[in-house]
Design a protein around this nucleic acid. Structure first.
Lengths: 156, 156
DNA sequence: GTAGAATAGTTGCATAAACAACTATTGCAT
DNA sequence: ATGCAATAGTTGTTTATGCAACTATTCTAC
């Protein structure tokens, strides 16, 4: 009797939601595969992309940029340090803070992984034409700005 | 000396990658907030969207659809059962299999959550015009198809 | 029809992440 | 100047997830 199909009016938005989710999961999966040869998780890779060998980043900065908890960043940097890719340096101006820089090995790994990952991503995006990709990224850029504004609203 | 900026040629793809990642994280964050009043995690919500009160779904089907491991689905359904939202029914035709259906409470919760979530999503997407949203979803649909084909290639 | 392969699901274990509580510093207000 | 609030980072704990090993069925080949 009460055969409950998904409310059909609401279907459209839910379909969009599934669409976004599906794509993210598949992209994430591809990212992991691309980074496997470099012994990097996507989180580690994301951190590497924000680091270099001269301008030390604070953990809090990484936390804000990656939208991960401070404690998660602590352990992420622990891993990178153990792997010999990064290094903590105490900030001379603020003894609470740690600056994270890449070791030469870290720079090398980051660059190699980045090349491989970019190639992989381009390949995976190739079902869209150059033109379509351009369109897509423009729309996403606009969306990101909107979502960021949203977030700010929430935090206030 | 070896001041290593991110390789600038590779920058474009990496920027796209960060773009996609940023958007996903922010959308996910918004989803969680929207579902909080319903005591649902996004995974639980995703599962609810695939279920109804008459057509039992196998755990394996959910696993394939949500791209989560079978074991994760087992525990996800455990949670939904404990919350009184879903129920396992042994498949009469295949005694290995379990069919999952929603309880009346589950149907109610799903519908209410879906309405609230859709409203929230539409609000968060509203930095794009209707036209742009339409464009975006069309591009994403095409991309999803491509990514699925990619996945099939890998699995073979 | 029986043995071995495949499938459905569960459980044990390892890891990633969030949240809360904590320490150590720094900044601010009066 | 001193004390209180804010900030940077770490650690303890809980939860979500994947992978591997396992049980119980079903399917396949011969």
């Amino acid at each position: 009797m009460s055969n409950s199909k998904t409310p059909s009016e609401a279907g459209s938005s839910s379909q969009h939601y599934r669409l976004i989710n599906d794509i993210y999961v598949m992209l994430d999966n591809g990212d992991r595969r691309a980074l496997l040869p470099f012994n990097l998780t996507t989180s580690q890779y994301n951190a590497l992309l924000l680091l270099d060998d001269t301008n030390g980043q604070r953990l809090v900065q990484l936390s804000e940029r990656l939208l991960l908890d401070k404690s998660t960043i602590t352990r992420l940097i622990d891993q990178l340090e153990q792997a010999g890719l990064a290094q903590r340096v105490t900030d001379p101006d603020d003894r609470r803070a740690q600056r994270v820089i890449l070791t030469p090995l870290g720079v090398e790994r980051r660059d190699q992984a980045q090349i491989a990952h970019n190639t992989s991503l381009e390949q995976r995006m190739s079902s869209l034409s150059q033109d379509e990709q351009h369109q897509l990224y423009e729309l996403l850029r606009k969306l990101r700005t909107g979502l960021l504004d949203d977030l700010e609203q929430q935090d206030i």
